[in-house]
């Protein structure tokens, strides 16, 4: 019996030493196999029980089991010590978190689309639909139906690219007003974004191809104040919550009364007399608007004594120049990767 105890003690001591010496999981596993494994030393000691006189065997079994339990507990402690050490080593690492990031593959929509979507999301929230249309349009939709008959001087303001005697690249998105009103009875509440073309010499402020976004609301009881309300909301959605809108009288053949729309200069908020964006006036011009001319309503079969409406048309690139403080409108058509990434 004391022989067994001596043997176990010795074995246990060597096992503990192996655990202490173990530097990694593999060394621990080796110690487990060597001592507690199927053919390990403990198993050999256990086999020796058979040679003891039967009365001594239960006590010997207990002694061995107790030793094994103690060894297993030590093994577990050693494992936990090792993994603790591994955690400690890992957690002690201090990488340079300011090191440049590994860039994901990114893409982005164009700022023209971003602005169009932002305007659209404001208007659709208020019940407007968004319609798209052809860029090649007959003069009827571009001019005649919009109260600009053949001899009207305003036609010269829309210096257009003609394809045939009657077909041209639309100089504005207003044909979609006529197309939509001819297909639907009022109420009509639409936005019409899209490409337009005018024979302008290209410079920092002009492109011969640009995007316009047109808005039209026709119903009973629609008035000028509703136009201001919607445009104020639109400007706040585009440029920030402090924006206001100012109307100035103007002239367009297809609206009466007509208004130029200005919004608070988003850069100086109307406070800087030396502002380079608004020239110190505090206001930035957005584009034209007004109450739909009765002749236009009549043309699409709406009774102007019953229905009233308003419309506006703004240049999307121009909205972007203001919103992003873009220095030159040609940046859009250059579509340089750096430009697209900055405004993504």
């Amino acid at each position: 019996m004391s022989d067994l105890t001596t043997k176990l003690d010795d074995l246990h001591r060597r096992f503990s030493a192996a655990l202490t010496a173990a530097e990694d999981e593999r060394a621990l596993e080796q110690a487990r196999v060597d001592y507690l494994g199927r053919s390990g030393e403990v198993t050999q000691v256990r086999r020796a029980i058979g040679q003891l006189p039967p009365p001594e065997r239960p006590a010997a079994g207990k002694t061995i089991n107790a030793a094994v339990a103690s060894m297993e507990a030590e093994l577990e402690a050693a494992q936990s010590r090792l993994s603790q050490r591994a955690f400690d080593a890992d957690l002690a690492q201090r990488i340079d978190v300011t090191f440049p990031a590994i860039s994901p593959r990114t893409g982005a929509i164009n700022p023209v689309r971003r602005i169009t979507e932002d305007v659209a999301s404001y208007f659709t929230r208020h019940g407007f639909a968004v319609v798209l249309g052809p860029e090649v349009e007959p003069d009827y939709y571009n001019f005649d139906a919009l109260n600009i008959p053949a001899d009207h001087p305003a036609r010269e303001g829309f210096d257009s690219f003609w394809l045939t005697e009657t077909l041209l690249l639309r100089p504005h998105t207003s044909p979609m007003q006529i197309r939509t009103m001819q297909q639907h009875r009022p109420p009509v509440a639409i936005l019409a974004p899209g490409k337009c073309y005018r024979r302008d010499a290209v410079d920092a402020r002009h492109l011969f191809q640009f995007h316009q976004i047109e808005g039209l609301l026709v119903a009973q009881d629609v008035h000028f104040g509703h136009l201001k309300g919607m445009l104020t909301g639109m400007c706040r959605a585009l440029f920030g919550s402090g924006q206001n809108v100012r109307f100035r009288p103007s002239f367009f053949p297809f609206t009466e009364p007509s208004a130029e729309v200005d919004t608070t200069c988003p850069r100086c908020k109307g406070l800087a007399s030396q502002c380079g964006m608004c020239g110190g006036s505090g206001w930035i011009e957005l584009g034209g608007s007004g109450m739909v001319h009765p002749n236009v309503l009549r043309e699409v079969g709406y009774d102007p004594d019953v229905y009233a409406g308003w419309a506006f048309g703004f240049g999307v690139e121009r909205l972007g120049l203001i919103r992003y403080e873009i220095d030159d409108i040609r940046r859009y058509i250059d579509s340089d990767p750096d430009f697209l990434r900055q405004l993504a």
């Binding site: 208020h126 019940g127 319609v131 109420p187 009509v188 119903a219 000028f224 309300g229 109307f247 009288p249």
Partner: peptide, 18 residues
């Protein structure tokens, strides 16, 4: 024109598709 009121309209349902 400065004094035009600013009113948000409520648009009646219509069937124009986006």
């Amino acid at each position: 024109y400065d004094n035009v009121p600013s009113v948000v309209p409520s648009v009646a349902p219509h069937d124009v598709s986006s």
